[in-house]
Design a protein around this nucleic acid. Structure first.
Lengths: 199, 199
DNA sequence: TACGTTGGTCAACGAGCGTTGGCAAACAGT
DNA sequence: ACTGTTTGCCAACGCTCGTTGACCAACGTA
């Protein structure tokens, strides 16, 4: 991460929309796809550049290194909805539905899961998402901090387990599940992990 | 998988216990450890050979290729207990406890999960374990075959999700869970996925 | 003692990788 | 039209990897 350019920074003087922005976006798209499909090591810069129809050296000039490219490609924002606004007994279903939506419209998450499972650095990035985005949301719903952490971890285990079997490992029965079935099965589980008394 | 040697095959004429067996075992041990810690690509044959204190070329002689070594190193046998022998309402707890035992005494499973998430070939191997070992066990408990597949997938998602967050991604609250807490939280979930009426 | 088999080392190969620096167009300001 | 910057391609470097084949030391048997 050499220089933090003014990419969509708030109240910036509207960067002049350089011609290279489309190339940059093409590289990021190709990178996300390759990282999601192949994992970190097998997704080569050369292959990503080929997909983006440019030279491998351009990737280096734009992102500095393969690590820099990965960091730029998987900038995740879970964007959890405001759970405190809806009735407590609907939280489980809402959370599962939201999770499914975000995962299926966004191959970033599959890329992150693949890479997170494959290397220490990737695991640390997933830990960061959990710590900075999931945990605070859990604390907002569940005041006791220690319980909030445990409950968030249980929910993460259930939801990431579904993503793993469905989108990464592709177990046929997990792929065959419909959206409604998943919500109906996992909703009550998540609800219980979030609100049931500590056993 | 070039040749399936007579490794602990039942009623074999007791192979003469060659001198190289210890080397073979050392290679397999080192391979399991490296694959579990680093994943497939980063676990190099050279590093495995260094751990086993032999030359890299020996690995090739014994296992043919890196793929062959991996196949030999992660020969998984889930060895599910006979679930039909115990009362239905205890099945969930028993299953979770058995799963935890097997996972913690055996780094093969972590290796398999890491690699399974990282490559297509690894994913297919995990699919094989699911299809050949988990699904039949599920069918023995749940007669309706379509339901058995769905229920097995749900249980696999929950259990693998726990392993992922606890042993691979190492989310702190997932690592901090005690064995009893896991059984108490996940037991009822697994029980419900196995026996509750299809929602 | 001679010799085939087994267990092991050594040095190298070809390929693919991330990465670098130089050079050619296209463009923008003056 | 002149000049500096941006955008891009090309050719190569250094490195590590999986893999190979030649060679060597024990060992068991005749």
């Amino acid at each position: 991460m050499p220089d933090s350019t003014s990419e969509t920074s708030p109240s910036a003087p509207a960067a002049p929309a350089r011609r290279s922005d489309s190339t940059r976006a093409a590289i990021l798209d190709a990178a996300r796809e390759r990282f999601a499909a192949d994992g970190y090591e097998r997704a080569t810069i050369r292959a990503i550049a080929r997909d983006a129809k440019i030279d491998p050296s351009m990737v280096m000039r734009y992102f500095g290194s393969k690590d820099g490219l990965f960091a730029a490609a998987v900038a995740v924002d879970i964007r959890l909805p405001d759970l405190s606004a809806l009735p407590r007994h609907e939280v489980g279903h809402t959370l599962v539905a939201h999770f499914l939506d975000h995962w299926e419209e966004n191959e970033v998450l599959t890329a992150l899961l693949r890479v997170g499972a494959g290397s220490q650095a990737g695991a640390e990035r997933m830990q960061g998402v959990f710590r900075d985005q999931v945990l605070p949301a859990a604390r907002r719903v569940c005041p006791d901090p220690e319980q909030a952490a445990t409950r968030a971890a249980l929910i993460a285990a259930q939801l990431l387990g579904l993503s793993l079997t469905r989108y990464v490992l592709r177990f046929p029965p997990a792929v065959a599940l419909t959206r409604q079935e998943i919500v109906a099965w996992l909703g009550p589980t998540v609800q219980r992990y979030l609100t049931a008394p500590h056993p």
